[in-house]
Structures are given as structure tokens and as C-alpha cells.
């Protein structure tokens, strides 16, 4: 099987997954208690008003019919409209995407910058005190709830020291103002990611160092730094980078909390606010969006892994 056949097979495999996802998302949301009509109209609404609105939004139709309409619409890229503001959900997601994309992007970059060197050193000096310290620090990263870390950052760096703004999305005031607001949230979000990445880099590095070709390189008389740089690191980074792509779900979950704490207008915070307002179409759209990003990322990761490793068996 060549790469292209593998690609087609991988894509075909994801079709039932997507159908399953949409079924889960749809049934999940329709089991949520609470009447969206009341949420929109408010406590003061009369029964007639509530019923009229339910009628208008097909909330009185049988579920399977609602599902059919919904599925047909998403296939056409129509995720429905917000119950509150009547804005198209796709538009809402698009408007919230930049904040999340930038935040996650910086978080990934920050975590790689921390993780790769530490992972390499940790693996080279296995079981030394450096390794132990590095592993403990990395472990701290996954052990501290990131929202708690975020709050601590705000108190120290924004309130007491006044060095950085307490998050927020300031790109309208210029690129650097925007980036400044991204620092604390990106570090808070990236900490856990850095920890995971460090562990992966370390084990990937250990794996590579055990391989025969490293011995061969050494035998060929290359100096140790050259062996490390030319062979070991290069070969260890690829699986690390591709495999951390699989952790994108971790990042997205973290973004929900980080965006809430740092007041970022991203998709994560939107999910929480939509949930509190029972805005069904937005909740559906967002969970579907998260799952899609997740699945698409894993496909890309799988493919790029296959692409970079011609030796891999496409199965």
C-alpha cells in the first residue's frame, strides 16, 4: 500500500467516526434540561410567547426530524443560528477562532522551546540529578491545575508586579500589545503541554539512543556531540512533534479554562457561556467543531508520520 492509498483509507475510516460524533453531539444537547425559549425570552415571558418561539425553532418537532434537518444543514456548512442573537453559529465560531488559534499556537511554541532542550538533556543524562529535577519540574506541569496556575500568574505578574496585563485580547491596540496580553495565558496553558512534550521527547530520545545506527555512527568515529546532533536529536524530534499533535485535545480542553480565567474571546470561553445560556446551536456547533479539529489533527498527524517515515507500514 502506498502513501496515497493509505490517505484514502484513512479518510474513509473517519467517515463513520464523523457520523458517530454528530449523533453523540445531537443527542447530548437534546437531553440537556432547560427550555431555550425561556432562556431567551427571560423570566417575564408569557406562555404564549414561549410557545411561539418553540414553534419557530422547531423545538416541538420530533427529535429525529430535528436531527435530520440539523445533519443536512451541517453538511452544507450551516451550523444554525444563535438562539439569543440570531447570528450564524459558523460566524460566531469564526470570530472566536483567532484568539484560540493564537493562544494555542503560542502555547505550543513556548512548550516546545522548553520541552525539547530539557527532554534531550534529560535523556542524555539519564538518572542524573538534572534528569530528576527536569522530570519533577515536568511532572509539576501536569500536576498543577492550569486554571490555578493562571490565577497565581495574574496575582503575581499583573497585580503585584504590574509587568503584564492580566490576559485579554488586545490586538486592536497593535501587534505587541496583543502579544503582551498573550504571554501569561500562553505560559499557563503551555505548562502542562510542555510537561507532556518533555516526557515524550525524553522517551523518544532514549528510544533513538538505543538504536543500532547510533552505535554505527559512534563506531564510524563521529564525536559524541555530532552523533547527538546529527542523528539522535533529528530522529527523536519527528515522532515527538507528530505525536504531540495527538495531544491537541488536551490543549483544547485547557483552552476552555485558560480563556475563562484570562478573559480571552476564544471558542473555549464561548462554550462555557453558551452552555450557561442554553444556546443549543452554539453548544452543538462548538462541540462538533472541537471534535472535528481533534479528528482532523489526528489524521494529519498520522499522515505526516507516515510521510516522514517511509519505512512505516501503512496499516
Amino acid at each position: 500500500m502506498n502513501f496515497w492509498q493509505y490517505l484514502v483509507k484513512r479518510l474513509l475510516h473517519s467517515v463513520p467516526v464523523f457520523i458517530g460524533i454528530s449523533l453523540v453531539v445531537f443527542s447530548l444537547i437534546h437531553l440537556i434540561p432547560g427550555d431555550p425559549a425561556i432562556a431567551v425570552l427571560g423570566e417575564q415571558a408569557t406562555d404564549e410567547e414561549v410557545n411561539a418561539l418553540r414553534e419557530e425553532w422547531h423545538l416541538n418537532d420530533p427529535l429525529w426530524q430535528q436531527f435530520g434537518i440539523w445533519l443536512l444543514n451541517i453538511v452544507q456548512g450551516d451550523l444554525g443560528r444563535s438562539l439569543h442573537t440570531n447570528q450564524p453559529v459558523s460566524e460566531i465560531i469564526a470570530s472566536r477562532l483567532p484568539a484560540t488559534a493564537i493562544l494555542s499556537g503560542i502555547a505550543i511554541v513556548v512548550s516546545l522551546m522548553i520541552a525539547i532542550p530539557i527532554g534531550i538533556i534529560s535523556a542524555l543524562k539519564r538518572n542524573s540529578w538534572i534528569d530528576h529535577v527536569a522530570r519533577v519540574v515536568a511532572m509539576l506541569g501536569v500536576s498543577i491545575p492550569n486554571f490555578w496556575l493562571g490565577i497565581v500568574f495574574i496575582i503575581i505578574f499583573a497585580v503585584h508586579l504590574g509587568w503584564l496585563p492580566p490576559g485579554g485580547y488586545h490586538f486592536s491596540k497593535g501587534f505587541w500589545a496583543g502579544m503582551e496580553g498573550m504571554i501569561l495565558p500562553a505560559v499557563a496553558l503551555g505548562a502542562a503541554y510542555a510537561a507532556i512534550t518533555t516526557r515524550m521527547m525524553r522517551s523518544s530520545m532514549l528510544e533513538v539512543l538505543r538504536q543500532e545506527y547510533i552505535e554505527t555512527a559512534r563506531a564510524k568515529g563521529l564525536t559524541e556531540p555530532r552523533v547527538i546532533r546529527l542523528h539522535a536529536v533529528k530522529n527523536a524530534i519527528i515522532p515527538t512533534i507528530t505525536v504531540i499533535g495527538m495531544q491537541i485535545g488536551y490543549l483544547l480542553s485547557g483552552a476552555v479554562l485558560t480563556e475563562t480565567i484570562f478573559f480571552m474571546p476564544g471558542v473555549g470561553r464561548e462554550l462555557i457561556t453558551a452552555l450557561s445560556k442554553r444556546d443549543f446551536p452554539i453548544i452543538q456547533g462548538l462541540i462538533l467543531f472541537f471534535a472535528t479539529v481533534f479528528v482532523v489533527t489526528s489524521i494529519i498527524v498520522d499522515l505526516s508520520y507516515a510521510f516522514f517515515n517511509p519505512k512505516i507500514e501503512y496499516s
Partner: peptide, 18 residues
């Protein structure tokens, strides 16, 4: 008008001048 649901975030934004 910014919508900031979290009490602490809201107060912090005032104190830090956002």
C-alpha cells in the same frame, strides 16, 4: 462595554487599568 463574568478578573482589570 466588556462582558467579564468572573469577579476576580473584573476587579483585576480595573486595578491594572485595563
Amino acid at each position: 462595554v466588556q462582558i467579564i463574568p468572573d469577579d476576580t478578573v473584573k476587579v483585576t482589570n480595573l486595578i491594572t487599568g485595563q
